[in-house]
């Protein structure tokens, strides 16, 4: 197991290194940065949904929370290091509380979906209504529907005047994604990850084995939120403004579509799905012939009908049939059977 993870990590580092180096030759680093951010956001849902069986309709809530936490903290502190950490910690704690309420209350999957959806709506409405001058946190005005512009963006730790932006931000975001991906891989190979998959498969059995299912789901949910929070902070740095639309339902739905299209129960599926669909949306945004939500809807329908397991599992099983060899990840193969069914019934 240890060795397997070592080889896995090495392959991951090499692939990531090559991709990060080549990609800017094709697409501008400015666009790439946001694709990476979306990839990380999709990974956060892919972790809790694909491996923990928790369908969160409100992953955007943690994304927005991370972005707002960063913006507010950066205005107050004037340096980016602590705000970056806070953008991870605040969504983590918020998700701990929300998750504990849902999972210790033994809510079914559907209600978890509904509650996370409603929490997103509440945050969206709340942030939207904070335009008045009385909504101030320290030096930062929440700004309502105008959002918060003009905060300190990412800088070299301890040196607020040397900013990390443009290409620098791209490399930083890529490195962050690789680190998160390595941590997620390690987590999934560890007993915690294997137990999480067990819980996804059969909660009752896992609790009859003596595992505290509620505690483990809460922790996994919070870890997903922490990753989404980091993605939010990176987004804030990229956009240099945070607005309530980060919390919007459209955003939440998009994350789910990325996961379905890329392939649930795989680590790379959601990232690839997010990057591909976000880039497609970017290209479609440059023309006026067809509305891009129509195309997005069409893509989702086509995927659910013809490629219900998503891109990555389809490629892996195609590779296996062609070359008769079990494909890349053990986890990928493991989830192949169930991913499709889950995606269809939830989609």
């Amino acid at each position: 197991m240890q060795n397997q993870f070592g080889r896995d990590a090495f392959a991951l580092l090499v692939t990531a290194g090559v991709l990060v180096w080549i990609a800017p030759l094709v697409i501008s680093t400015y666009t790439l940065t946001v694709l990476i951010v979306y990839g990380m956001l999709a990974l956060s849902l892919g972790l809790i949904w694909g491996y923990g069986g928790i369908l969160c309709f409100g992953q955007a809530a943690f994304f927005g929370l991370g972005a707002y936490t960063y913006a507010i903290a950066a205005i107050n502190i004037g340096e980016s290091t602590l705000p970056m950490l806070l953008a991870i910690i605040v969504p983590f704690i918020f998700a701990m509380m929300l998750g504990a309420m849902m999972f210790y209350g033994r809510l079914g999957d559907v209600y978890v979906g509904v509650i996370t959806l409603v929490v997103t709506l509440i945050l969206y409405r709340f942030i939207n209504s904070t335009a008045g001058p009385q909504f101030v946190l320290g030096k930062a005005r929440l700004g309502g529907f105008n959002g918060i512009p003009g905060f300190q963006t990412l800088n070299v730790p301890g040196n607020p005047d040397s900013y990390i932006w443009g290409d620098g931000l791209y490399y930083f975001a890529a490195a962050a994604l690789v680190v998160v991906l390595l941590l997620v891989s390690w987590l999934l190979a560890s007993p915690f990850g294997r137990i999480a998959v067990g819980i996804r498969e059969n909660e009752t059995r896992m609790s009859l084995m003596g595992y505290d299912v509620a505690a483990r789901k809460t922790l996994l949910f919070a870890l997903g939120a922490a990753i989404a929070g980091l993605a939010g902070a990176l987004f804030a740095n990229w956009a240099e403004i945070v607005t309530p639309s980060l919390f919007s339902l459209g955003q939440s739905a998009e994350i789910i579509i990325w996961c379905i299209a890329g392939g649930l129960g795989t680590r790379f599926g959601p990232i690839i799905g997010a990057a591909a669909l976000a880039y497609l949306k970017f290209l479609l945004g440059q023309q006026t012939l067809v509305d891009n939500t129509v195309i997005m809807g069409l893509i989702l329908v086509l995927f659910v009908l013809f490629l219900p397991k998503g891109i990555v599992p389809a490629v892996v099983s195609g590779w296996t049939t062609l070359f008769g060899r079990r494909g890349a990840g053990k986890a990928t193969a493991l989830r192949r059977n169930r991913a499709g069914r889950g995606a269809v019934s939830h989609g």
Binding site: G198, E201, N202, L208, Y211, D212, V213, R335, N337
Partner: peptide, 24 residues
């Protein structure tokens, strides 16, 4: 007690409907 606490004492439980992880 909740089931996981009972099981943690060293009690093995098999329910009426088969409770296993079919995907594993």
């Amino acid at each position: 007690w909740r089931p996981h606490q009972v099981a943690s004492l060293g009690v093995g439980i098999k329910t009426q409907v088969p409770n296993v992880m079919d995907g594993l």
